[in-house]
Simulated scan of single mutants.
Amino acid sequence: MNKRWQVPVMLGMLLLGCKDPQSTGTDKYFKDFPDGAAPREVGQKVTERFLAVPYQNFGRPGEPNNLTYSEVCAWYGALTFSGQIKDTVLTRRLEQRFKPLLSEKADLVPYPDHVDYTVFGTVPLELYMQTGKQKYLEMGKGFADKQWGPPEGPRVTPESHIYYDKGLTWQTRMWIDDMYMITAIQSQAYRATGDLKYMERAAREMTVYLDTLQKPNGLFYHAPDVPFYWGRGNGWMAAGMAELLRSLPEENPDYPRIMKGYKTMMASLLKYQAEDGMWRQLVDDPGSWPETSCTGMFTFAMITGVKQGWLDKEIYGPAARKGWIALTGYINPDGDVREVCQGTNKKNNRQYYLDRKRIVGDMHGQAPVLWCTTALLR
């Protein structure tokens, strides 16, 4: 990290209330991993794979029309990993991948009129925090602010205005995926600026989603009219709550509600973890297949909770460790994660979920592995 940015960033970490993981006594569960499961080794391998492949297009040939949210989430994970291990060379290489988006590839930068596009801002904000370059702050902050600006563009619906008038983002959809996409960009804007408005926005949004969508068992249907607990959909929610709570000040009035929702979900997930450490395509369905993207997201949420002291380390520490070791067993020699569910729309049909394609190297699976490496090393 550029030395002139070390002091402000360190001060920012203190202001954000980030706890020292050493103080929680959790290291016994997050060290001495078997061969192939060391977080630094895995993080390096999966990051190198990320750098080696072209911009992704959901498995279709050619470049995407816009950078996909799944690539953005993997990029964010790679950057947090490089920052955590203080590998400035690796960070520069990740920055080099970004630079064409400021010039000849600028048309790939998504317009922030949808949660899947607005999450792009997490990457320039992370680059700003690691390099101190103002252009990245301005770019990322613009995405975060646009999310709470007035409804604008062809994606605006009558509901957009209703949500906006309630103080929520007009991009609200009541899809559980949103609670990673929205909280990630707003949390990053807070970490980069220290402005509490970003956390207040995200926290209020999260409470509305929890009150509307969370079931008594702590899990979430894929949609109100689709009574299935789809793995990755629940994974986005779990990871989103962990990302938000990691920086949300405890005095925020929405903090208790979000923590309750998070802990209720974690307790439920504990019951559905398979003996081998994996979670499944349909979380509560033992007849469905072990799926890696949800396993990575749930593992990330549990690692974070144990490290931060929110979860009982003697109960959740072993579960998080088991999940991580199981997940690393699905990474092939090239650094690609296997058994990743393809992009999935909702459908009120159990067999539809069981029959989804299982992809190798999809960014939906690469991303949470990288989040986990960072969380384990924090």
Rank of each mutant, 00 (worst) to 15 (best):
S268K: 03
Q273L: 02
A238L: 00
G240F: 08
A238T: 06
D254T: 10
E243G: 05
L244S: 04
S247G: 01
G261T: 01
E275S: 11
P249L: 08
K271W: 09
S247R: 13
P256L: 06
Y255N: 11
E251S: 15
G261N: 02
K260C: 08
K260V: 03
Y262M: 03
Q273S: 06
K271V: 09
M241D: 04
A242C: 11
G240A: 10
K263W: 01
K271R: 15
I258E: 10
T264P: 07
Y262V: 11
A242S: 12
D254L: 02
K271F: 10
S247P: 00
L248N: 14
L244H: 02
Y255C: 11
D254C: 15
Y255A: 14
L269N: 03
K271E: 13
S268Q: 02
P256A: 09
A238Y: 04
M259A: 10
E243T: 15
G261V: 04
M241R: 08
K263M: 12
D276T: 01
K271N: 08
L270C: 04
A242I: 07
E251P: 00
I258S: 06
A238N: 02
D276N: 06
L244M: 11
A242T: 12
Y272V: 13
I258F: 03
M241K: 08
M265A: 13
K263G: 05
A238K: 06
E275H: 12
W236C: 02
S268R: 06
L244Q: 00
N252I: 01
M259H: 10
L245N: 07
P249H: 10
Q273M: 02
P249G: 04
T264F: 06
A239P: 01
N252Y: 00
L248D: 10
E243R: 15
L244V: 05
M259Q: 14
A274D: 10
P256W: 00
A238W: 03
Y272T: 09
L248Q: 12
T264W: 04
Y255V: 06
Q273W: 01
R246V: 11
L269C: 00
A267Q: 13
G240Y: 13
M266D: 05
T264S: 14
G240Q: 09
D276V: 02
A239H: 07
M237Q: 08
L245E: 08
